[in-house]
């Protein structure tokens, strides 16, 4: 047996190591705890409510676990809410419409964002910083404020209509606000930076000599783009598209303010169920289904990616 008292340095080292490893678990654990508290537990609550029944009470839903009169614990899980969602065409259509709006907006963001990201990557370093700054700059004003600004631009008496009338192109205002078009404008405008930034990060790593190599081997510019640039920027395209598509699907503010109730998206339905109908269980079921619709393709994509990186 060793005399531990004669080796204070070893004990100090041991203490240091213990502290270090516990510090490490704090650093890792803290965000996990945060997510547990403010994401996983709320999610569990929403999930629980989605299996309950609407009541005129406070809280306005039935409890799942109940002590029966015979002293046994009763578990009551109702799938009625999900059944209701499946049966009422309104919900299915709203889901489909949300996905459609999100998909088309994502495609527009990609079509607009891709050339912008490419142009930023190819510009000289000083200009590059200015351009990147300009992309990020809108985040410095409130999102809501920017949507309101679009209302001002698109309104019947708004800037765009007034300008077109002044030019003499139109005689009376055309309907811009409170339309599907306005919702697309709002979503594409708001989410464009989320497309550009991951694309930029991806393209920044692209070796420009690959383009020259393709050209040197006889590829016309369009062929170079399709065979070299596009496949190599695919990770950026996927990342940017997910960052636009996912929040756009659940978007509430833009269809509400710019769509004015004419464009029904799942966020608005959720809001109505919750606030107007006070049907918390159905609202929760709507949220759960939305989550599944969005998470499933993402997990699929991640599985695909990890398989691809495992193949490398």
């Amino acid at each position: 047996m060793e005399d531990t008292a004669s080796q204070p340095s070893t004990r100090l080292q041991q203490l240091g190591r213990t502290l270090q490893s516990s510090w490490r678990s704090v650093v890792v654990g803290l965000p996990f705890f945060w997510l547990l508290l403010f994401f996983l537990i709320p999610f569990a609550i929403v999930l629980k409510i989605s299996f309950a029944e609407s009541l005129i009470a406070s809280p306005p839903f039935s409890t799942l676990l109940q002590w029966g009169e015979d002293g046994a614990l009763n578990l009551r899980i109702l799938f009625d809410n999900f059944k209701f969602l499946a049966e009422d065409e309104l919900y299915l259509n709203t889901y489909l419409n949300s996905l459609k709006v999100a998909l088309i907006s994502t495609i527009w963001c990609l079509l607009i964002g891709y050339p912008i990201a490419y142009a930023i990557v190819r510009s000289d370093p000083a200009t590059k910083n200015v351009l990147l700054m300009l992309i990020i700059l809108p985040f410095w004003t409130s999102f809501l404020l920017r949507v309101y600004a679009w209302m001002g631009l698109l309104a019947d008496q708004g800037t765009i209509n007034s300008f077109l009338i002044w030019l003499g192109i139109i005689d009376e205002p055309i309907r811009l606000l409170y339309s599907q078009f306005a919702v697309y404008i709002g979503i594409v405008y708001s989410y464009l930076p989320f497309m550009i930034l991951p694309l930029y990060a991806n393209m920044e790593k692209l070796d420009m000599s690959l383009h020259e190599a393709a050209s040197d081997l006889g590829a016309k510019p369009i062929t170079t783009f399709l065979t070299v640039t596009l496949p190599l920027t695919l990770p950026g395209i996927v990342a940017g598209s997910l960052l636009v598509f996912i929040p756009a699907t659940g978007e509430y503010v833009i269809p509400d303010l710019l769509g004015g109730g004419n464009v029904l998206m799942i966020g608005n339905v959720l809001f109505n169920e919750f606030n107007s109908n006070h049907d918390w269980p159905v609202a929760s079921a709507v949220a759960i289904v939305l989550l599944i619709v969005l998470v499933a393709p993402m997990m699929l994509y991640q599985r695909m990616q990890s398989r691809e990186s495992a193949a490398h």
Binding site: S209, L210, E212, A213, L217
Partner: peptide, 10 residues
């Protein structure tokens, strides 16, 4: 045809 310094392999 050119052989690039970085090879520029796809």
């Amino acid at each position: 045809n050119m052989m690039f310094q970085s090879y520029a392999l796809f």
